[in-house]
Write a protein that binds this DNA or RNA. Structure first.
Lengths: 204, 204
DNA sequence: CCAGATTGACCGACCGGTCGGTCTGAAACT
DNA sequence: AGTTTCAGACCGACCGGTCGGTCAATCTGG
């Protein structure tokens, strides 16, 4: 978008920005409920309350729109994730907050996360690399928390990468909680159970 | 003795059965490398060395074929998984064998597993339920191993479901091993690391 | 020589993307 | 203030390519 005189006061500018985000949100809704291929551009436009042609005023193609949607939501997620990991008096509380957020998101809007593990793999290399980066950053957040525990002498002096990624992957159980009919699979219970296993192990 | 039966000797029958499986295998190859939507029926037929029309002699539609592919491979996987879980002198060895198999499959042919986590979710309810069942059975295999450890007094007397599912979900790390550039992420190293964390925990 | 298997050219539904045209509202001018 | 102009946001009917699925023609082997 090009610079212009008195942009901030230009209502058209505000309008344009608003639409951009509106479309991404609408697209996020449709993409995450039906997947890339079944999502219809016209339906996305309808959801955003605009005409189909207008979508193409903002995004070059359906695929470009999809990439922007992924970037938008993953960026938002990482921000919240880092924030959650910052709030807590010690490594344990930070761990609970961060994983709690991840599990809640997976639990309540599994569609969003499915979006992340699906479709993008068959997109171009650039999006794939973006997702590698997102996974890496999320892992880093947990690793840093574990390192804090190591420095405090609470955790064994190990490479925290694998346990960190295990915690993240295990959070995926929240996606299936509906199918399991297990009251222990409530977000809170799941969070505690996962952390408990990774911290204490299951050996007697 | 008599020639009454002899259906099994009917070449047409054998041929039909053979084709059926050939097509499924060819479809598995194409579907797992490109996903459902990008896979072309004609390409599957070509891979199977037959004409496109013949595919429709064996399967009602592309979607029906896809369902059969998923059922075929998951059934085969579960059989091997149970087999691996049976071979081992104690719970620990059984655990290593079963997880080792899963991790190897994920590592060497991530396409196959991607097939399981992708696409099917946007198919019909029946396939979704099938996948729930497959996950449940795989979890059960690991749970049974853990129960053996519990009975032997090696493992805490806990509900083995969550650790079992954590072990399975954590195996997914094998999918990313390429992106991590970590020598610890070799299938063998990963298997040991995952089991070690779940069994012993990471607390000092 | 026929019954069933096989085939691939063909059909048409479908949908991403385009484009000619409308509408809005802000500046420019009187 | 009223009028004109104009940029560009917005629109949706339409176009063109793409495949899933069909079926008449062909093949095959018994």
């Amino acid at each position: 978008m090009e610079e212009r005189i008195s942009i901030k006061d230009d209502p058209a500018f505000e309008k344009k920005k608003g639409r951009h985000e509106e479309i991404i949100k609408a697209a996020g809704k449709i993409f995450s409920s039906k997947g890339f291929h079944r999502a219809r551009v016209e339906e996305i436009a309808k959801e955003a309350g605009i005409g189909k042609g207008t979508v193409y005023e903002y995004f070059k193609s359906k695929r470009h729109l999809f990439v922007e949607v992924i970037k938008y939501f993953t960026t938002k997620f990482l921000k919240e994730f880092k924030e959650a990991a910052r709030n807590g008096k010690d490594y344990r509380e930070k761990l609970e907050n961060a994983l709690g957020l991840l599990i809640d998101i997976l639990h309540e809007s599994s569609g969003f996360f499915e979006l992340l593990v699906r479709d993008h793999w068959e997109m171009d290399e650039r999006l794939y690399q973006w997702m590698v980066k997102v996974r890496g950053e999320a892992s880093k957040v947990i690793e840093d928390i574990l390192v804090e525990g190591i420095k405090a002498g609470k955790i064994k002096d190990i490479n925290p990468r694998i346990p960190a990624m295990m915690l993240i992957e295990s959070s995926r159980l929240a996606l299936f909680s509906g199918d399991l009919g297990d009251e222990k699979m409530s977000p809170g219970g799941l969070k505690r159970a996962i952390i408990d296993v990774v911290l204490n192990g299951i050996l007697r």
